[in-house]
Design a protein around this nucleic acid. Sequence first.
DNA 1: TCATAAACTGAACACTTATTCATATTATAT
DNA 2: ATATAATATGAATAAGTGTTCAGTTTATGA
Lengths: 200, 200
Amino acid sequence: MHLNIKEPTTRNAKNTFEQIEKAAIKLFYKKGYHGTTVKDITSEAGVAAGTFYLYFPSKVVLYKHILTSFSHNIRKHIAEKVAQKTSRLDKEKEGIKAFILYAKKNPEMYNIIWESLYIDRELFRDYYESFAIRYVNGLEKAKRNQEIRDVDSEIMSFILMGITNFIGLKVVFDLGQDNDDIEHIVDGVLDLLKNGLFTK
Amino acid sequence: MHLNIKEPTTRNAKNTFEQIEKAAIKLFYKKGYHGTTVKDITSEAGVAAGTFYLYFPSKVVLYKHILTSFSHNIRKHIAEKVAQKTSRLDKEKEGIKAFILYAKKNPEMYNIIWESLYIDRELFRDYYESFAIRYVNGLEKAKRNQEIRDVDSEIMSFILMGITNFIGLKVVFDLGQDNDDIEHIVDGVLDLLKNGLFTK
DNA sequence: TCATAAACTGAACACTTATTCATATTATAT
DNA sequence: ATATAATATGAATAAGTGTTCAGTTTATGA
């Protein structure tokens, strides 16, 4: 996917570029993609409207650029954290924890990734489908090592993505209570993965 | 929440009203709220642009009306199905199944409910927070009956909502494979709730 | 120092779109 | 049958917004 973004060369230009990115992330989060005008972005960034088009050919390209960047960062962040652990249980725990902490620190991520469903449905599909594929690989490996039971990996990957996403949603939007005790929340998830929900 | 919708009285007017609703659901699903114009809706409904304003004071009010209606219907549908079962395990299974089947039959629901995050964040909050409260009540009762383990009900309710939502997402958007075998998918979820993920 | 390129400006343009309203048609009830 | 209310029309309006561009400022390198 070529976005035709003009990368800045000089230091000043790099700063302008970054100010525009930063302003857009802030505003897309706060007011959504459609609720944010190019004027809003350039004002927030402290530059003139025309400056926007020195770097980005259109508003939607800036959005895609930010989405791609977020998508990249969250994956990388989780992968790095998970790689430090050896057992699948520890990997799962670390992955969930990393996701939630990242979401808490970057609350914009949610709005921006989910909003892709209403801006470019293919991006949305790609994001979750490729995330799922990665997950399936990890689960298959764990199955071979007999660390996890003989589950349908693809279904399980969507289950696990659903859990982390909705727990993240709870934390980011502060739905319900006790959203500061991340350890407790992660333990709650791990408890289910270890012991199930029902009594025997 | 008063939407100031003018309910139609005569039979013909009722038909017009419904055509507008139907057209809007179709188009909001296909092109999103912002991608759909009032002209689009009235054309699809086969009426003139001005007719829209006989019934709805604005485009956003129509959206809220549809969202409220969907939100009502899905809850009622699940509640009815769940009420037929006695054990918590059967209730959970039936609830998940009902949600997925409803989502498959009404794929518009997803777009429309999730899009509320970008149209009226309070509606989004209310939807998930009240859904969670209902869930918590059910889980607390099951805990008292010792049908489920001593889990944090609120965390568990977001876990369960996340699972059903993302499994629904998979089915509706046909992500990955085997999205026609709903029984198999539901069994996959129940397997986790019964036995957890990890080997002992 | 000075020529050249890069970066920036902001008013103007072109287009879209939610909403209004004067007018016309259709249904209802007496 | 006819007055009245309900329903419908669609062109006009008014406001907003993504994008362009001619002109200006700033940085660079020889």
